[in-house]
Computed example of a mutant assay.
Amino acid sequence: MANVNIKFNGKEYLLSCEDGQEEHLEELSSHLSQKFSSLKNSLGNIGENKLLLITSITTMDEYFETKKKLEKQKIEIQNLISKFKELKSLVYNYKDEKEKEILKLSDNQTKLEFEIQNQKNNYEDLIDTATKEIENFIQKNNPDTNIQ
């Protein structure tokens, strides 16, 4: 245990704290002393006990207001976390849907490419057949012509 000399309202007090907490105790004491002095200046000398009580109540009020704000912020953070999770889920669902659409479009593209190639082959076969039939027709109707 460490000992710290604290000056409060013109008097010195020896307080104990855990090792390493000396600076923190001095900071708390300084804050309390400032609050006490401020109240003493604004309210006048109404007695040390009453000023200590008012200082304690004021400090507790600040503590509880801070605690309420903290609880409110925790709730807001939980709401944000919940909204974030919902948004994350929506993003992943959207991504999955788009990947399915891309796959479907890719399959359709492959089918269309295959169909185009088949149509091209059929067209070439049709042209070849028509050309042969025209050549045969010309040869039959005009035996003197030699077409290549």
Rank of each mutant, 00 (worst) to 15 (best):
L53R: 11
D19C: 10
E99Y: 08
I81K: 02
D125W: 01
Q119W: 12
E26I: 05
E76H: 12
S82R: 13
N9K: 13
D125F: 00
S30K: 09
D125E: 12
Q73W: 03
E115N: 13
K11I: 06
L28F: 05
K72R: 14
L105S: 15
E101Y: 01
D128V: 05
E48R: 02
E115T: 02
M1S: 07
S106F: 06
N3H: 09
D125K: 00
E18G: 07
E48G: 07
K95T: 03
I102A: 13
S56A: 14
T55C: 04
Y13M: 10
E135C: 11
G10P: 00
L103S: 10
E23N: 04
G20E: 02
L80S: 04
E135R: 05
M1A: 14
N122M: 13
D96Q: 15
T129I: 09
N45V: 04
N146K: 15
M60R: 00
G47P: 12
L126H: 03
D96P: 00
F84M: 07
P143R: 02
H24I: 08
D61W: 15
M1T: 11
L105W: 02
K35E: 09
K11H: 03
V4S: 07
L43I: 08
Y94C: 04
L43G: 07
D96H: 03
L14E: 12
I147M: 14
L15A: 04
K11V: 09
N41D: 14
L87W: 14
D19P: 01
E65T: 15
S89F: 09
E18V: 06
Q119L: 04
T55S: 03
N122V: 14
F114N: 14
S106H: 10
H24F: 14
K83M: 05
F114D: 15
Q117T: 01
